[in-house]
Structures are given as C-alpha cells and as structure tokens.
Simulated assay, not measured.
Amino acid sequence: MTDLSAFPITGRWPAAHPDRLQLYSFPTPNGVKVSIALEETGVPYEAHTVAITKNETWTPEFLALNPNGKIPAIIDPDGPGGKPLALFESGAILVYLADKTGKLVPSDPALRYETIQWVFFQMGHIGPMFGQLGFFYKFAGKDIEDKRPLERYVNEVKRLLGVLETRLDGRDWIMGDDYTIADISMMGWVRGLVQFYEAGDIVGYDELSRVPAWLERCLARPAVERGLQIPPRG
C-alpha cells in the first residue's frame, strides 16, 4: 500500500485509498476544473472537502501542500517515475492530468501549446477578472460608494466574453472539434458569472450567441455534471 504519511495534509484529511490520486478541493470555479478533468479522464481519485468557508486552506496541514493557501491541490501517488507528486494551481494540474493520461489535449505539439495558451488565458484573465466583478457586484464591494472599480471590471469582463465569442466562431469548442482542458478551465467561471454572481445582465451575456451555446454543451457532458458536485460542500 502506498505510504503518503510524508505529506502533513494526510494527517488532517486521511486517505482511505492512498493508492488513488488525492484531491483537496471545494466546488468553486477553480476547484471544479480538476474534479471535471478527473471525471473526464477516468483517473481513480479520492476527493477531500477543504472548506474554504471555514478557512481550512490556512491550516498548517494545507499550507504544507500549497503555501499559497488556495484550492485545489493534489497528491498523485503514481507521479513521474512512480513517485508521489504534490501539485497546486488548477492550470498546472489540468496540464499534468492531460499529459498523464494523453487525454483532453491534442497530441500535435503545436496544437498542444495552443491549448495551453488558452488555459493560461483563463488563469491570467478570465478567473481574476470574473472574480473581481463578483466581489464588486455581489459581495462586500457592492457597498463601496465609488462605482469606478465595478465599472472597470464590468468593462473588462465584457471584453473577455467578446474574446471568447470571437474564438468560438465556427467552433464547437475552444480548440475546434476537440473538447480540451481549455474548455474545462473556463466553463466554471462562465457558469459562475451568470448563475452564482448573477451578473449576466450587466455584462450583456444574453446578447452573445456562441458563448451561451458553448456553455450549454459543456454542462450537458455527464462528467461535467458529476464534477461540478465534487467534492461535496460538506
């Protein structure tokens, strides 16, 4: 049996199946990227709920795995060379799972890098900007008298949705005919924008055609339906 005792996080979230990939996460737009990818690829895994609402990412055990204190993070007992590998950052984990399984990324080197380019686009733009919009529109930021921050993020989210709308012209998926980690990286954030943040109206979401249709295709996938609920909120 695989011994994961060298990882302090397993003391707080014990592994019932240490031979399986261990996922430490919460069902946020960033968290569900990894659970969806795991469901899509079929990699055996065990999910642990790290309650961000209870600040569990700031415990010493979690920080030993991710010093940045953010979900998701993984330990793969069958990492490179058969040795356990710990990883954080959802984009890095998506690339790792795609490379590990040979799924969700094109085999052609140029197309592979193009796919990763779009994952980085999500990491650098879609996630941070959509998250800031959510703060200033739905959460504490809405009480700030100065509305210029909200306007800034509304305009930037509109621009980013326009980038996606243009990219999806003549394409079912971000990379064309093939569903990839690029789609997985973005779908949770677009879903969160319209469902959780309820910000569709202020960013003109209903004026788009390709992005909403793409999101419907994403959400119709059985692995996505499952992954969106993993791990349970507890």
Results as ranks from 00 to 15, higher is better:
residue 220 A to D: 14
residue 167 R to M: 10
residue 231 P to S: 03
residue 54 K to E: 15
residue 169 D to S: 13
residue 46 E to G: 01
residue 192 G to N: 14
residue 119 V to I: 15
residue 228 L to E: 09
residue 190 V to G: 00
residue 209 S to M: 08
residue 22 Q to R: 01
residue 70 K to W: 02
residue 8 P to K: 12
residue 92 A to G: 15
residue 105 V to Q: 08
residue 94 L to D: 06
residue 28 T to K: 08
residue 115 T to P: 03
residue 117 Q to A: 14
residue 64 A to W: 03
residue 223 A to Q: 11
residue 123 M to N: 12
residue 156 E to M: 04
residue 46 E to K: 03
residue 69 G to Q: 02
residue 68 N to W: 04
residue 198 E to F: 10
residue 231 P to R: 00
residue 192 G to D: 06
residue 26 F to N: 02
residue 145 E to N: 08
residue 30 N to P: 01
residue 113 Y to H: 14
residue 98 A to T: 08
residue 166 T to W: 09
residue 30 N to H: 05
residue 24 Y to R: 01
residue 195 Q to E: 14
residue 20 R to V: 07
residue 25 S to E: 05
residue 204 G to D: 01
residue 116 I to N: 08
residue 153 Y to N: 04
residue 212 P to M: 09
residue 160 L to I: 13
residue 108 D to W: 09
residue 44 P to V: 12
residue 162 G to Y: 12
residue 232 P to C: 15
residue 79 G to E: 11
residue 92 A to M: 10
residue 53 T to D: 09
residue 45 Y to N: 05
residue 68 N to G: 13
residue 43 V to E: 07
residue 163 V to E: 10
residue 140 A to M: 14
residue 53 T to R: 13
residue 71 I to K: 00
residue 209 S to P: 00
residue 104 L to H: 09
residue 216 E to D: 15
residue 47 A to W: 00
residue 151 E to A: 15
residue 4 L to F: 04
residue 189 W to D: 06
residue 9 I to H: 07
residue 152 R to G: 06
residue 233 R to V: 15
residue 217 R to L: 10
residue 147 K to Y: 14
residue 155 N to I: 03
residue 219 L to G: 02
residue 52 I to K: 09
residue 6 A to Q: 13
residue 149 P to H: 11
residue 119 V to W: 08
residue 63 L to Y: 00
residue 128 P to T: 03
residue 226 R to Y: 05
residue 19 D to W: 09
residue 162 G to S: 07
residue 221 R to Q: 13
residue 110 A to K: 09
residue 40 E to I: 12
residue 47 A to M: 00
residue 116 I to R: 08
residue 124 G to D: 05
residue 234 G to N: 15
residue 192 G to L: 08
residue 46 E to W: 01
residue 176 G to Q: 06
residue 210 R to Q: 14
residue 83 K to R: 14
residue 101 T to R: 08
residue 36 I to V: 15
residue 9 I to F: 07
residue 150 L to S: 06
residue 121 F to C: 10
residue 53 T to E: 13
residue 133 L to Y: 03
residue 203 V to D: 00
residue 18 P to W: 04
residue 154 V to Y: 00
residue 121 F to I: 10
residue 122 Q to W: 08
residue 73 A to Q: 03
residue 199 A to F: 02
residue 180 T to Y: 12
residue 54 K to Y: 10
residue 179 Y to R: 08
residue 165 E to Y: 02
residue 46 E to I: 01
residue 29 P to S: 12
residue 160 L to P: 01
residue 204 G to F: 01
